[in-house]
Design a protein around this nucleic acid. Structure first.
Lengths: 210, 210
DNA sequence: GTTTCAATGTAACAAAAGTTACCTACTAGA
DNA sequence: TCTAGTAGGTAACTTTTGTTACATTGAAAC
């Protein structure tokens, strides 16, 4: 990826040219394919991923292999969790994987602190990411704390539609069940209900939002 | 509060003397009594609270008046949520109230950005707070996503013990039910169970952890 | 002491979610 | 075309959680 292409991705943040140059000189782009795991729990990351294109899925896991979907990272988002982890060298508490084929820009952690000190636009960017991630965690908490499974499922489908930009969701009931930490039978039951309410249409490996 | 007293509270962060001086010159201390609300959802804060003494309780609310406990802020903690909100002037998404009589140091928001740029120790402090708050949100998520109500209740009691430093918890079943977003009857039922398992002892307005 | 009110206990039932078991339908590959 | 394997449908049942209703208890006020 050349500098002008990277610059296009970064335009919206109003980064100083010197900062863009530093980001270009010190980072590198990486392509990941759908399903590829980028951040694993317990892993010590030495770079911060900035999503240029595509969608990453961030999930939380417990010790028994259960998981729960937290939020998506889309173009321009960065993983605040990685940043905190990197800045004090602690372990990642979450896991991130490519939901679609994606392009990320990898920033080695050793530059973060100095960029934060030097560039106001970068401070703004970092704190803004934090706020957005906080907000998304709160939305995840809202779902779990205040909503029944049928509502959570519908919200999940709408989120997925939003992040992918497509009304068609290519997931099995089993996969959805895993992300909502429930069982396949429950999801099938509730999807059938949504189908009866004419909110979705189903076929094998595919759900269409109406 | 004089400067040396403030300095004692800040010692553990290794702040530069010049930073301590700025914190002292530009902030002020505030006493809050148990139950007092410090941050309301939707409120536009113009200061960041740093907890010097006591305990603040941070909760999330939905539109119907339901709430869910997130975490406690103890001596030395600051409210990362306030910081993000302040830095980009967005509204608070959460609510914070004094769980005990507490002393907080109020930092006007206009200084944050420049301190973050100027002082490495402050950057470290701020990012560390973020990380701690993130971790605590994740623990809250773990409870909601992966645990049954009986476990959540017991964890809640242990958390409360931890933050207050006392084996005696002075809350009614009703109050606990509110913080876990369930009903009083459920809490009474499960507390009775914990009592039978000899994990707690109960009397009116009081629960003792064994 | 008596009254009053909040706090807690408990039964009985309802709703939501989880589990087991087995079935059918579709698809890819032999 | 046949077969094996995956995806999805559904019934029956259990467990967990929530709800309603009412009884009991303790503390404070009178």
């Amino acid at each position: 990826m050349d500098k002008s292409e990277l610059n296009n991705h970064l335009l919206k943040y109003g980064f100083e040219p010197a900062l863009v140059q530093e980001i270009y000189d010190n980072g590198r782009s990486k392509k990941v394919v759908a399903g590829e795991v980028i951040v694993k729990p317990g892993q010590n990351n030495n770079y911060v991923p900035l999503v240029l294109d595509g969608v990453l899925k961030v999930t939380r896991h417990d010790d028994d292999g259960s998981e729960i979907f937290l939020y998506y990272l889309e173009g321009g988002d960065t993983c605040a969790m990685s940043i905190s982890c990197c800045l004090d060298n602690s372990k990642s508490q979450i896991s991130a994987s490519a939901e679609e084929d994606s392009t990320i820009w990898m920033i080695p952690i050793e530059y973060l602190d100095s960029w934060i000190a030097k560039y106001q636009s970068f401070r703004r960017f970092i704190f803004n990411s934090y706020r957005e991630r906080f907000d998304e965690m709160l939305l995840a908490i809202d779902s779990m704390a205040f909503m029944k499974m049928d509502e959570r499922l519908y919200k999940y489908l709408l989120d997925k539609k939003q992040s992918s930009g497509s009304f068609e969701i290519k997931k099995t009931h089993e996969q959805i069940a895993k992300e909502l930490n429930t069982s396949r039978v429950v999801i099938s039951r509730l999807l059938k209900q949504l189908e009866n309410e004419e909110k979705i249409e189903q076929s094998r490996n595919k759900i269409e939002i109406l």
